[in-house]
Design a protein around this nucleic acid. Structure first.
Lengths: 332, 332
DNA sequence: GTGAAAGCGCTAACAT
DNA sequence: ATGTTAGCGCTTTCAC
């Protein structure tokens, strides 16, 4: 392994000078700088970031906690984060936790052990305890799924997304609706509230519960859709699925039942995954600015890392937007 | 920050003993071990992996180079790798390169600078030079997309996948076929060769070129499909798309043209992404054992890391398998 | 079984 | 502008 010491010896300068050159300090003569760089290239020197970190400089490492990378929505964010981090000279280390609290904890500890400069957090439930844990460890952190009073956050208010879908359904003249998804989602709350505020009793909205981790099999979903269609056939005219993947399953289930979308039932999803516009019919959905989320999360984290005086947590809100496609085009 | 030194002082033992306890050395009295652990917990000590790495032990860090994480196939592999690495006490640091040679190089250098124990490589084109570069740097490496004579590899022979589709098409009585995808894919070679070997002149296979990075817009694909259907309408009865995402786009394009699948045209994809069975009609496709690939890649890499005597590169082959679904069910 | 001490590769005062 | 030196937190001989 080639070290700075080697470079120093070959270049006939001191270790400190080599370090200065490599870190772009101005106080080095053009001459010596040239010499040093010459040997750096000749010997194909590569810094040891562990050592450099140990000695006081930053690790340029960011840890990211994901709840479920199989969700294309998070995947999009990861891709964006990696790109932005790379652009800014940071590396990304990941952990996919499936929401398991112990894995989250352990990952945070590993991150700390690796001297990360900061962490990016994907949290779905209330994790005040976790945040306090991180805060107490003095690790800069940014949440990119939930707003927080404790740490910086970049997030999209899901309730608004739910409200957008509700409004769209109302605009299209729907009155009897169903929701397929997790019961504890803010988008459901937003959806129902908006209906209530517009003269539709949310009590009448059929709710088909699907667990958050998508662990419900296709078979199971089909079965429930079948139940729904056999009993409520003529009532329901619009279905809101809590994410696109589920929406596509639902679409499949409907189509297998001979129920046409959007002619018989309108269907809307959530997330705007790339496939949502490629399927047939293309899916009406709610988009979240994933690129912005990923980019901003990294940006804010790094800003936070580089500031010495502690400013209060910043909460950036990025609005969701409705994307109307064919799956809801038909008015009843 | 709590360090080993702190633990040593509180426990009234030497630094060395603390290190021994923490690394599970047997030569420590039960008594002292207890004392040390007591303080480790009391002070919430966490190791500094940078320091530990510097001082001689391993970094337990694995670098992974991906060409395109937006491809669900790679995503599946990443998820698996993260899980396996976590299970074995390793962390994963990633880079998404889009095949850009300079980013690949730079990432390898960053990995080296971070003292990774090894790297996992996703390479699509010939990268002998890169591998020699890595070899010369003495970094253990495993390729998980291409076989290699220089480094260990876990891979699925794509030609066989292509051949499986060809055989399936033949079984279903098809004779006029088309391929949508990158021209340089081994799966295309396998597809064509198998046809030739079975009395179908591969010259007659229509090839619609789509670039590897999926940069072709939906519009463009639709346009080309339209060209195909207007000129060859009555000829082509089966289409092989080089990956599921493209297949779904093609399906969409066909359906928009009023062409039914599988009644008018059979369609097969490649990769078995989770959505392929959720769309309508469910897509016939070729599966690759992504779980195995991700798991084995990590496993082999770690095996290689831990062995001192250099064994020759090992090439593990995992067979692709055909998954017949509705999109090809109809015999002409 | 335990401790002292050297040193991993680097940065950052501190001198000069 | 440049060199010397003292660590950063840990592992690992080497003594005892």
């Amino acid at each position: 392994m080639v070290t700075m010491k080697d470079i120093a010896e070959y270049s006939k300068v001191s270790l400190a000078t080599v370090s200065r050159v490599l870190n772009g300090s101005s106080n080095v003569s053009v001459e010596k700088r040239k010499q040093v760089m010459e040997w750096v290239h000749r010997l194909d020197y590569n810094i040891n970031i562990s050592a450099s970190g140990l000695a006081g400089s930053s690790s340029s490492l960011i840890g990211v906690i994901f709840s479920d990378l199989a969700n294309p929505f998070f995947m999009d964010i990861l891709i964006q984060m990696e790109e932005e981090a790379y652009r800014l000279g940071y590396s990304i280390i990941i952990s996919n936790t499936h929401g398991q609290k112990n894995k989250i904890r352990e990952s945070i500890n590993t991150f700390e052990a690796r001297q990360v400069d900061g962490v990016l957090l994907c949290i779905d439930s209330d994790e005040t305890a976790l945040m306090q844990y991180i805060l107490q460890k003095n690790i800069p952190a940014v949440s990119f799924t939930q707003p927080s009073e404790l740490i910086d956050s970049v997030y999209t208010p899901m309730e608004k997304g739910g409200a957008l879908v509700a409004q769209h359904f109302l605009d299209m003249g729907h009155e009897k609706m169903a929701y397929v998804g997790d019961k504890n989602e803010p988008k459901l709350t937003g959806f129902l509230n908006h209906l209530n505020q517009n003269g539709i009793d949310s009590e009448n909205v059929n709710i088909i519960e699907v667990d958050k981790w998508g662990n419900l099999s296709n078979y199971e979903i089909t079965k429930r859709i079948r139940e729904l269609t056999s009993t409520k056939k003529d009532e329901i005219t619009a279905v809101f699925a809590f994410n696109d993947v589920t929406a596509i399953q639902v679409m499949q289930a409907f189509q297998d039942e001979g129920i046409r979308i959007p002619e018989d039932i309108a269907l809307a999803g959530f997330d705007n995954i790339s496939l949502s516009r490629k399927i047939s019919p293309p899916l009406t959905t709610v988009g979240q600015p994933t690129k912005e989320i990923g980019r901003l999360a990294v940006e804010i984290l790094i800003k936070r890392i580089n500031q010495e005086n502690i400013a209060p947590p910043e909460a950036i809100t990025l609005e969701p937007y409705l994307i109307v496609r064919k799956s809801t085009r038909q008015t009843k």
